[in-house]
Write a protein that binds this DNA or RNA. Sequence first.
RNA 1: GGAGAGGUGGGAGAGUGGCUUAAUCCACCGGUUUGCUAAACCGGCGUACGGGUAACACUGUACCGGGGGUUCGAAUCCCCCCCUCUCCGCCA
Length: 424
Amino acid sequence: MLTLKFIQENKEEVITRLKVKNFDASAIVEKILAYNDKRRETLTNAEISQAEMNSLSKEIGTLYKAGKTEEANSAKSKTADLKNSIKKLNSELEKVEELLHDELVLLPNLPHSSVPAGKSAEDNKVVKVGGSVPKLHPSAVPHWDLIKKYDLIDFDLGIKITGAGFPVYKGKGAKLQRALINFFLDEAEKAGFNEVLPPLLVNEDSGFGTGQLPDKEGQMYHATADNLYLIPTAEVPVTNLYRNVILKASDFPVRNCAYSACFRREAGSWGKDVRGLNRLHQFDKVEIVQITHPENSYEALDGMVDHVQTLVEKLELPFRVLRLCGGDMSFTSALTYDFEVYSTAQQRWLEVSSVSNFENYQSNRLKLRFKEDGKKQTQLAHTLNGSALALPRIVAALLENNQTPEGIKIPKVLVPYTGFDIIN
RNA sequence: GGAGAGGUGGGAGAGUGGCUUAAUCCACCGGUUUGCUAAACCGGCGUACGGGUAACACUGUACCGGGGGUUCGAAUCCCCCCCUCUCCGCCA
């Protein structure tokens, strides 16, 4: 959520900047400001009445104690009207606060000034390209064929025991998963991220804190008997570790990394783009999360992008980095870089990471604040996160790009983790 | 799943209707003292939303797990819910 204060003080800026996200905020902003005026007026009146009531009650107590029952009783008779008006004002206040909140959550985060305008993925800006696309042998095939050929992943078994999109990894396929997870975690730790292993189910408050609820409720699996949600990314539990927390400025930067399975319903997805490992209901991912002082969040974002770049470079994958345009960005992000690796056999780019700065948009929901040394007032921190990395499409690209007539070669950095250097 | 106990500030912990402005201790911060450290002493020490201010100061209201109720007045009494702990059951 944007903060009320910011909207009040920067009305025009909010409207102008949200145009980059193709979002017309003017009507909502007007409503917000009007509701807020009403809220303040009602609040002031309610508080005045409440203050009167408090002093009257105190007086009555003193009178009783002094044995002046008659005076006390006459004072009591004055409270009825006051009580009624307090009740009325409070219920008005509650209503207007709800209306205000309902409008506030409709506003997306403001895009950073460097975000290009645009409507769809075509308008994203390529900011970096690296690695080289290998020349494959003539009989090269997409990863879904390789998976079958070498018996690495069994989709049919997954369908049998769960459903489509829940693959069963087997043999070297399973070992490759473990190897990648450990490699990513080790690299993250080396880059200064502290590992946590969070729960895979979260409660409603956590879902709200990072913005999955209420808007994207349909994207999460919901365990209704206990009202818990399966996490779509470790971002949710890890960021929520700091929900309702007041940090000290000296705690910055807070850096965590986490491996987790991720669960996504992907309601409404179908077609060739979702074939094989391209889109799954359950997949593995190592996530990096950072909490910073507002002044340092963009520096931190660059650092996270650099970290992800070293990962794809070490894996020797051809990659490119995109700065997402306004139309392709998420609701909550201020600036997002996507990493894509080139899948040579499919001849297309696959998104493997998304690194974002949310500025204080998430913190405002999370009530994640900090205090400067010696200062009394709290400020909202900035939150960032990124995949480092999501496994399935990395696996797809590794299998396709490294296939040879003799088998699939494992990148050097991974060999100590897999214990083998070729899949054949 | 069954039975019991409990949920109070950063932590411990008192508080059974108005002398609570939530005691006290610890932690933390500032000061005095001190060659340094420690100790002692003095002072400070929550959050949110209003009012106020250039910014402080100051000030109002709410908050004792959450929600409702009784009352002139609720941490305290009543109702519902949530959570934690202990024991039992089941179980990796």
